[in-house]
Nucleic acid binder design. Structure first.
Lengths: 201, 201
DNA sequence: GCCTGTGAATTAGTTCACAGCA
DNA sequence: TGCTGTGAACTAATTCACAGGC
């Protein structure tokens, strides 16, 4: 909206864009403070500013990327979209000695994961993206726990637990597909989950 | 569990693995049928079979990938993890003429998106992964609506709406980072969201 | 005795509806 | 009059607690 030169918006308008109920929008925002003016609406630049503050993104957040040698890791390391929203991938890590010797072109130096604690401390990294294979995930998780990192965006298809120290968001892409598959299956199912053999022992 | 040779599991055990409450596990499963034996637990192979049936994954589901030229698209096109869970990327699409002329190595032929309706029909594709840039997302969405596709896993940083015809799961990676940033910010905030200037006009 | 399936109780989340301010 | 902020009403989700089968 700001890019479109709008200066004001109502909860109704936001609700439309977000596919939500206007009351929901108001309540959620009100939880953090009083950002609107009664009878008027929300001043867009101020609202944006407030949301940035709430999200802790007033200054650029340095992010580490572990598993930079894999294809997903490379894709995310080179993704331009993070910068626009105040994130910057400032350090790449991997375990594979081959990758460490010669980093894929376009990427800068890749460090061994063992150096994560030192480098994270130096660069103020509190957040990492994890794109390692399932087998490596728990080992890397251990190393992360020894570092200044307090948040993980995990793409490895294993459920890493959040603790008091570390928040984890697990993004299992296959599970997303499964979820969609379920919806497809439902709409094409008239009434039959027990249609074929289901004999007790 | 099946891979570990286990034959039985309890809701308690599953709950532990999934970080849920045992009652939750039982209720969720019971919603779809009676898969367990009282006093015993769930027979793992049968349970697995049932879940596969619920998810509509008894046979391999063919998936299309739109935006195969981009780095994320390539990464997902080559990702081995989908196959293990009964998905197969059977057709790649893009708009970029350069990509169409010479597909990145390792990938097979890439088709122009305009051919999606025809090819989707031929191959029975009902699901696509969308890894196009934000600008292209809505145009592509229009084309998808003309095809047999009924489910979209969208990585473009725009909120595509679900309809009665099409289910959309939007995966905005930057938003995931923002969410983590919020948690970091909370834990480092003693009591101050209105700490600096917030003057009314 | 152990563990599922499930109604009842509880807790959480959403929407309504209106007071209060521009 | 228009729109926010918010208690109250409502709806949904989770957890409890126990009947019933192994």
């Amino acid at each position: 909206l700001e890019k479109q030169g709008e200066m004001l918006c109502s909860s109704h308008q936001l609700a439309g864009l977000l596919h939500l109920n206007p009351a929901q929008v108001r309540k959620d925002l009100a939880y953090f403070g009083e950002f609107g003016k009664r009878g008027v609406g929300y001043a867009i630049p101020k609202l944006r500013e407030q949301i940035i503050k709430i999200l802790g993104l007033k200054q650029i957040r340095p992010v580490g990327l572990i598993g930079a040698g894999g294809r997903l890791g490379q894709a995310l390391a080179l993704y331009r979209g993070f910068e626009k929203r105040n994130f910057r991938v400032v350090a790449l890590f991997d375990k594979d000695p081959f990758i460490l010797r010669q980093s894929p072109m376009g990427l800068g130096k890749i460090h061994p994961v063992e150096e994560l604690p030192r480098i994270a401390k130096e660069l103020g990294i509190e957040m990492v993206i994890l794109t390692v294979p399932a087998e490596a995930a728990f080992d890397v998780y251990e190393i992360i726990q020894l570092s200044t990192v307090k948040a993980i965006l995990n793409f490895a298809p294993v459920q890493l637990p959040s603790t008091d120290e570390i928040v984890v968001h697990n993004v299992d892409l296959t599970m997303k597909l499964e979820s969609l598959s379920y919806y497809l299956n439902c709409s094409s199912l008239p009434e039959s989950l027990s249609e074929d053999d289901f004999s007790e022992d």
